[in-house]
């Protein structure tokens, strides 16, 4: 009787110690899920999801405060990836959030008055210029978020869709007539 109690107590102490040790040793800093979700998001920082950037949206998804179909730049594939990551059902885009073809912003340099408002709006610092100097977009860094369009007082910024060139051309998915697969 006593020995049984002692054995049980002993096991409890040992296991408790192991668990306690594991909790300290394998402690996870921060919320890894947020980073995982953030890695899937396209990082346009466009705010189309209603959150001020990709990270806040990721945080909201992780906290189950936001749906997974709010990111048009990520496309349907983005939703699929999120669905897979979070073990959720795929959800199509709503009517107000439809993905658009990728584009980069372009500043009409004749119209630009150098107000720097777009520079302040750009989430990735992809616009160079100074007050009363002409501004220009660093196309390679532009995520196409369109956040610079609204603040421009003279409407000199346009979104140019990225055209298919030899360097970005992709082979198409082979299609053939036989199997009208769903």
């Amino acid at each position: 009787m006593i020995s049984a109690l002692l054995v049980m107590a002993g096991i409890a102490i040992v296991l408790g110690a192991v668990l306690g040790f594991a909790a300290i040793k394998f402690r996870v800093e921060g919320n890894p899920l947020v980073d995982k979700i953030d890695a899937v998001l396209p990082q346009t920082q466009c705010g189309q999801c209603g959150f001020p950037g990709c990270k806040p949206y990721a945080t909201a998804i992780a906290a189950e405060e936001a749906d997974i179909n709010c990111c048009p730049p990520g496309g349907e594939e983005g939703i699929r990836k999120l669905a897979e990551l979070l073990n959720k059902e795929f959800k199509p885009f709503g009517d107000n959030a439809k993905p658009k073809p990728k584009a980069v912003a372009y500043i009409d340099e004749n119209t630009c008055i150098g107000c720097t408002l777009c520079i302040q709006a750009c989430p990735v610092d992809a616009i160079v210029g100074a007050a009363k100097q002409m501004h220009t977009i660093i196309a390679a860094d532009c995520t196409g978020c369109e956040l610079c369009l609204a603040p421009c007082p003279v409407d000199c910024i346009a979104m140019n869709p990225i055209e298919e060139t030899l360097s970005v051309w992709k082979w198409k998915y082979p299609v053939y007539a036989l199997s009208p697969t769903p």
């Binding site: 953030d38 998001l41 396209p42 990082q43 346009t44 920082q45 950037g53 990709c54 989430p123 990735v124 610092d125 992809a126 860094d141 995520t143």
Partner: peptide, 8 residues
């Protein structure tokens, strides 16, 4: 995306 995240 990584570059954009870093810049942001």
């Amino acid at each position: 995306a990584d570059q954009a995240r870093e810049r942001h």
